[in-house]
Amino acid sequence: MTSDESNRSEDFGLVRAARGGDEDAFGELVRKYQGKIYSLAYSMVGNHSDADDLAQEIFLKSYRNIGKFRFQSSFYTWLYRIGVNTIITRRKKLRRNRHLELRPGALDVEGSPYLSPRRGGKRGDEAAAGRELRRDIREAIDRLPEKQKTVVVMHDIEGIPHSEIARILKTSEGTIRSRLHYGRKKLQDDLAKWLD
């Protein structure tokens, strides 16, 4: 049995126990995936407060719907699907209410060599350049159409493989690659001043 298979069957066991009312079993699943779900939410919304709120909501939804899990995909795929749908719905609400925030220090790009256009000045200038870069990245990601943004975040930021994203979003790998291509192209145009 490979580690993937053993992981999957371990998750299935925990899901069965959770369906039987064992909260501790569900807690195991939460502990196992909370970091990944939080990270996905953070990459999509860009601030800790909303990401934390979303992560809690995603697990709550999965608990309420755990009876609907059919054991046809991995628990991880199913959980991510709930996650992506929840985040997209919330982002639509957020977009209506306010512009997305960027928590100071959220994006650790201080060590990036691409600060070069602004480097060479005082420390204050560097910090300002870092802030500007973070803001530009965040805004560029945020301007992407929802489908492209989801794929760019999942693949280029979270490092999820194409095949897994295709399973999560219930679409083909070709579609995922195409969305990624167009998303990256838009980002390159939007972030041109940091790339050239």
Binding site: S39, G105, L107, D108, S112, L133, I137, I157
Partner: peptide, 9 residues
Amino acid sequence: ELLRAARAP
């Protein structure tokens, strides 16, 4: 590289 740096802390 920029996007990877945009990962959540």
